[in-house]
Design a protein around this nucleic acid. Structure first.
Lengths: 145, 145
DNA sequence: TGGTAATAGTTGATTTTGTAACTAACAAGC
DNA sequence: GCTTGTTAGTTACAAAATCAACTATTACCA
């Protein structure tokens, strides 16, 4: 006997979003993990620095909605591997300015290209107009607009 | 000096999907966590059993794309709390049939209502047509269609 | 000043997840 | 029957995430 319950789990937005997000992350994750041994939080920090140039840990946390302990540990590992340079601020000695080293820049530029190509393949499944709608709605749901 | 890098992280699909998924999960998570002390993998197992009635751990894993160790541990905790009943199959003594206990049913029905109401609030931000497009595309990206 | 609160970032303890190895039961071929 | 391979599910160990407490520094204000 099969239960007759009409709740559609596949269509439940939080569930569906998670499935799509996981699936969409896989291909890119494979690259930053296999090629550079990075974690999710680490490529995110790397990208923030690649895009914005010089930030504090707190700024990265705010921009990316990442908890400060995650940022702290990501920065630690990136600095250990000489991909990120830390410099204590002179004005406020609690603050540490972070930026990519040349090696970090190189990794960033490589991964940025991979990201762009990968996203291209993902979006190839959809048409132009759909992509616009999709991204706009995701931004709304993410509370970014 | 601010770097001039035009890569838009907010618009990078895997990143954006993750942000939206996390944000969209928060409100529901709060309920199943605070009210019943459940983890994400646990409510998923619970819902699968609520919807489909009687399944094996392997079936749940296949339907929900969840690794068997996660299912195993979720079932263990749910069984400890008498929300799920396990019964060794007679035909094949490797498999275990899982179903909700009356207490599990009760939790499921409560959470299902919460889920429906919560999704309603989420979708209120968007219009009817947008929702159709969104879900359809997420299904595609999730590899479900 | 001096005292309290706030902020930047780190560390430690606990929980949760991921990977791989494992046990037990069945299946198939000889 | 016996061997080999497969499947269901668990367990052990390592990796990672989470939460709270902590240090150091600055800000506020009586």
């Amino acid at each position: 006997m099969t239960k007759a319950d009409d709740f559609d789990l596949q269509a439940f937005l939080p569930y569906l979003l998670n499935q799509a997000a996981e699936e969409a992350s896989l291909g890119f994750q494979k690259v930053y993990k296999d090629r550079y041994g990075l974690l999710r939080s680490e490529w995110r920090v790397l990208f923030h620095l690649g895009i914005f140039g010089r930030l504090t840990a707190t700024e990265i946390g705010a921009k990316g909605k990442v908890h400060k302990t995650k940022v702290s540990r990501a920065v630690q590992r990136l600095a250990d591997r000489r991909l990120v340079k830390r410099a204590r601020s002179e004005e406020d000695r609690r603050v540490e300015w972070l930026e990519l080293t040349p090696a970090g820049e190189k990794v960033y530029r490589d991964l940025r290209e991979v990201a762009q190509a990968y996203e291209g393949r993902l979006l190839a499944q959809l048409n132009e107009a759909e992509v616009q709608v999709l991204k706009c709605m995701l931004l709304k749901l993410a509370g970014r607009s």
